[in-house]
Design a binder for these strands. Structure first.
Lengths: 247, 247
DNA sequence: ACAAAAGTGTTGCGATTACACCCATGG
DNA sequence: CCATGGGTGTAATCGCAACACTTTTGT
């Protein structure tokens, strides 16, 4: 009925859990599914950004492609964390119909490799600048997603929660200059609990890769905070993992 | 030229890095590749146990199937750790020929999901009891494996090294009753360094899930060691992670 | 002057390290 | 009685947790 696979493999996909931090909340970038059904009653379920893998394409390459299309950014933090291959993950009727329709080929089961990615919201294309109907959603107030995408987010979040304790990857989520308080808030929302701020700064500022700038906040109605920046080289050289949170 | 896929998906496989501990060394279970070439000049390269995924089969199910066939064991420790999907991972000519021959179908690129598994060598079928030409190899003296299997082992080992620091999974590798020294040796070979045995026991024996038995070693030419066993329930109940090695 | 968030030090406790000798057994 | 590896305690140090007040700014 349909022609054989054209440029992509009908069994393999990547999906990206893209995290961003708006200063108060950890958010995930979702897109609204396009397709015939969009106008119907069940219009526009949300899904994770993802795509089938092109023939001859690397998995990570596919993830980067999806990311670049969506956010306009290259060289962003990207890490594989799991594979989802349950044979009935795509058997929900509506989901399956959409799959075949949007890919144009008959599809039985899709195994997806899941990546999580950390981006600076301010650097990304805004929600309206791309034509993917993308939007940022609070990670703890997500709508129902297609397939097993809720599960994928959950596992991606668990991975982030774990890895951020040992590696200074939080800076991928923060602007180029930031205050210590911003880092602390980020940790607090990721761990879901408050941290003692004296102890937090003490620990954090031992890290030589967090360097103070000669610049303070402006226009705030309280003592302005000092800005810092992250020196990746200092981390790579020394590999000192001062961040070691046992929450 | 060939008939379409019969019972399995030609793009998806699982591979298992099966670790065992013989009392002195960490070992990996390898099988010798069967096929026409076996008799030829380049006879019998080693590979990881693995297989293509059956249609409608779960990824983890496939890994369990491979494991059960090979070792005769069910319910063994199994954990997904990565996906390898580089499009030229199977392009080595010899490897690729073997792939198509043994599967009977034309194959372009195979994405494999890698699992690592911990088993008690003594409980497994012996090397001769199965007909897969399986053998245990010291993890630091592996031969050249097919495809990217050396890389897969390396990453599996790195994962094990990390996870064993936080979870009491070492018992999966030890016999039902064991001495503290055995655990220590296991950690030493995995971390590749010696540990202070007074401090090691002190830390270890705080864990309530390691319970002393009323039995000692017999027939050793020195003070016999006390045997202990692992109480999984005590761990699951309390989740006390006393194992916390910062090697 | 007031509100609001930034920034700062000390003390007690528990965990980690370093380190050396006696014990039980088989041969 | 000797060789072998099992098993034990203490003291010094380090890192972590708990905790409250002063500073700087805008209004």
């Amino acid at each position: 009925m349909n022609s054989p696979p054209a440029n992509f493999n009908p069994h393999l996909s990547v999906d990206c859990v893209i995290f961003g931090f708006d200063g108060d909340n950890l958010r995930v970038l979702l897109i609204k599914r396009k397709g015939r059904n969009t106008g119907g009653t069940k219009a526009g379920k949300y899904k994770l950004p993802g795509d089938l893998i092109h023939l001859k394409e690397d998995l990570e390459g596919a993830a980067k492609r999806v990311l670049a299309e969506l956010t306009g950014l290259e060289n962003i933090f990207l890490r594989q964390f799991s594979v989802f291959g349950n044979p009935n993950r795509t058997t929900n009727e509506e989901d399956h119909a959409w799959l075949e329709e949007s890919s144009g080929i008959p599809i039985s089961r899709v195994v997806t490799t899941a990546y999580y990615s950390l981006i600076r919201i301010d650097k990304s294309k805004t929600e309206n600048e791309n034509n993917h109907h993308a939007s940022w959603h609070k990670v703890d107030e997500l709508p129902n997603l297609v397939f097993d995408h809720n599960q994928i987010v959950e596992k991606g979040l668990a991975t982030l929660r774990n890895e951020i304790r040992f590696e200074p990857i939080c800076f991928e989520l923060l602007p180029g200059k930031f205050t210590i308080r911003q880092i602390q808030t980020l940790y607090e929302v990721i761990f879901g609990k408050e941290l003692d701020n004296r102890n937090f700064r003490k620990k954090l500022l031992k890290a030589k890769y967090i360097v103070p700038l000669n610049e303070k906040q402006k226009g705030v109605a309280h003592k302005p905070a000092l800005y810092y920046s992250y020196n990746r080289n200092k981390y790579v050289e020394t590999r000192e993992d001062v961040l070691y949170y046992n929450f």
